[in-house]
Computed example of a mutant assay.
Amino acid sequence: MSTTAPTTEQLRLAVIVGSTRGGRFGPTVAAWFADLARQRDDLAVDVVDLVETPLPAVLPGFDGPSAEDAALFGAVTPRLAAADAFVVVTPEYNHSFPGALKNLVDAHYEQWQAKPVGFVSYGGLSGGLRAVEALRVVFAELHAVTVRETVSFHGAAGTFDGPVPQDAAGAGAAAKTLLDQVVWWARALRDAKAVRPYGT
């Protein structure tokens, strides 16, 4: 678990590492992005890695999770609930996003509601953008607000020099734009919910 403690003025940003596949590149991308986010005074960052916080392969029924599975949900669900905003770091698998990420999304509901979601994607020629488009539809169904701007890496492994992108300035500028939008929506939605709970 990687966290920084928030102050009263900060927003809680959960950066979700969406791939669990062996040899995954996601942690490199997520670490770079989370480091940029931590440099902002308005964000407290929590990196949620689905390898470190796995959910059961079979999601709970209407009677809730078993006692054995409840501990798995307890490792991640409170962190999603505490977040004011999310950035999902995802690869593209077969024109869509990873099954483990879908499992995480489907296992939760109110934790996503009336909160902004941004995307950092990576892949081959498409840079993971088809995975992002598929995720937008899913998050809309869960009453989340997805921000327009994304950060994407085409041919991702070849675009990084170790832990940082080769085009650090360009990638950093894209990340700043994304974070600016996420922060704007997070503050607007948090303030609105303080006046009137969502859905009322």
Rank of each mutant, 00 (worst) to 15 (best):
S66A: 11
L55T: 11
G124I: 00
F86I: 00
K115V: 04
G64E: 12
R148S: 12
A31F: 08
E52W: 05
H143A: 13
F160T: 10
E68P: 13
P27L: 01
A144T: 14
D46M: 00
Y109E: 03
A81V: 14
P91F: 02
F73T: 11
E92I: 09
G74H: 09
G22A: 14
V58S: 14
T90E: 01
H108V: 08
R79K: 04
G155I: 01
L55W: 12
P78C: 04
W112S: 03
A57F: 15
A83W: 10
A81Q: 14
H95M: 08
S96W: 08
V51R: 13
F33D: 03
G127M: 01
L36W: 10
D84R: 03
T28A: 03
A37H: 10
W32G: 12
V45I: 02
G158I: 00
G99I: 06
P56D: 08
E68W: 08
L129H: 13
A134Q: 15
D63A: 12
G26M: 02
P60F: 07
R148K: 11
V45L: 00
R79F: 03
D167V: 10
F86T: 11
L43I: 08
D84G: 04
P65F: 01
D46W: 03
D46V: 07
K115C: 00
V138R: 07
V58E: 14
G99K: 00
F160D: 04
T53P: 02
A81T: 15
N94P: 07
R24Y: 09
A140S: 14
Y93L: 04
F139S: 07
T90K: 11
F73H: 10
L50Y: 13
P163V: 00
Q39C: 05
L101C: 08
Q39E: 15
R24L: 00
V145H: 14
G158D: 02
V51P: 04
A67R: 10
V147I: 09
D46N: 09
A144G: 09
V120N: 03
P54A: 08
S121P: 08
